[in-house]
């Protein structure tokens, strides 16, 4: 409950403050968001599995965001930025899907 409130507070804070994303970070924001979502769904599944650990969650979240942005940055420098973004989105998408499937099994037993 408290983490959900934290999420809502973050969204409201973002809408109120309207943070301006610096130009150099703009291409990496969407991929960072997808990576963050992957970490959050992983954490939610771990919570339902009963093995949630806040340190693992924090580290996986930050490393996911940074590595996803780094891969896209590297791809941009090598001229394969959009292809690498697609690859990152596919991998993270598969992981999000299977984690959400596990969460669904926990919640609905189906």
């Amino acid at each position: 409950m408290i983490p959900a409130l934290g999420l809502i507070a973050g969204v409201v804070l973002g809408l109120v403050l309207q943070p301006s994303v610096p130009i150099w970070a703009q291409p990496y924001l969407p991929i960072a968001v997808v990576a963050a979502l992957d970490a959050v769904f992983g954490g939610l599944r771990a919570l339902l599995d009963g093995i949630f650990d806040d340190k693992v969650f924090v580290v996986s979240f930050l490393s996911n965001v940074i590595i996803a942005a780094l891969i896209v940055y590297l791809g941009d420098q090598l001229g394969v930025g959009s292809q690498l973004s697609t690859g990152v989105v596919v991998v993270l998408g598969i992981r999000i899907f299977s984690n959400v499937a596990a969460i669904r099994r926990h919640l609905f037993h189906a």
Binding site: P3, A4, G6, D54, F57, V65
Partner: peptide, 27 residues
Amino acid sequence: DGRPERSARTLAILVLLGLLLAAAALQ
């Protein structure tokens, strides 16, 4: 096993996620 999901670190990360989502959508 405590209630690690209520730790300040988890909360901070989720606030950060909310900020990221809002910033990306606004962007």
